[in-house]
Design a binder for these strands. Structure first.
Lengths: 145, 145
DNA sequence: CTTCTTGCAAATCCTTTGCAGTTAC
DNA sequence: GTAACTGCAAAGGATTTGCAAGAAG
């Protein structure tokens, strides 16, 4: 059992929940890649591999992984959620190209630090944050003229 | 006609669109307050005042105001959109309390400046951005222990 | 064996759309 | 006049839920 599986197991145990076949399947699939993904895409990929987990269970499991701190949920100004797993992947923020839809990641320690300052100032205890910048990437900027 | 009405009028004119009764009603209601709001809440408030605009038209008009740069759309990790109008209201970011749902605004010029730096670094032309910090406010922090 | 889970299909929520009649310019 | 607009009701997409049967501890 690897690192993140252990973490999930411990989270489930603490809450009196069970480590089922489906939960293991979903978790493995989620951690198989570092890409952003959406519930529906994940479901399709799993179906192609004949990993049978129902849509309902998938959604329920993703929620569990988010609660358990293994998965990050991002809502990119659209109506469906994107996810990305947290293990071995430092926190970062996103540039979203409105032209080609590309999502670029960046990380800036100064911004992180300033956010902490702000939280202190407002006596706010942060859990997560999300910074996204919408605009046009180099390529699409040119095409736009 | 006031400032934002003029701006909308000019935007509509430029695009060959019409300044209808309903659009005027929605715009007035939107600009009547500085609060964040959601489409459904706005609709209800308008109904209470006997301002009859259909749900479809409301959504269409909100989209128009966003396109026209009069309204800002925020997706707070939930499924419905929040809006806040832009006039007389500097850009700012948000602290969202997961306990009581309160939304607090803040503005930090250093963060804004750093974002611009990042965009330059990635040759990215920003249109808008959104930074939200989720966590617990002072009051809810205490209650949580 | 008891409690938690699953899969299914139906429900939900917010938002968008098609269309026939109406209005702004 | 004629494009754009409206309201309605129905459709849409992503996610959630109720429930009876199944699996984990």
């Amino acid at each position: 059992m690897n690192d993140h599986e252990a973490k999930l197991a411990s989270y489930l145990h603490k809450r009196g929940l069970k480590f089922t076949r489906q939960r293991r399947i979903v978790m493995r699939e989620v951690f198989a890649s570092h890409e952003h993904f959406q519930a529906d895409g994940l479901l399709q990929r799993m179906r192609e591999k004949n990993l049978d987990v129902s849509k309902a269970t998938l959604y329920r499991t993703l929620a569990l992984l988010v609660e358990g701190g293994l998965l990050r949920q991002e809502v990119f100004g659209e109506r469906h959620c994107h996810y990305e797993h947290i293990y071995g992947h430092k926190h970062h923020d996103h540039l979203l190209c409105l032209g080609c839809g590309k999502i670029e990641e960046f990380r800036n320690n100064d911004i992180e630090r300033l956010q902490d300052q702000i939280c202190r100032k407002y006596a706010f205890t942060p859990t997560t944050h999300q910074l996204e910048i919408h605009g046009h990437c180099k390529k699409c900027r040119k095409e736009q003229g």
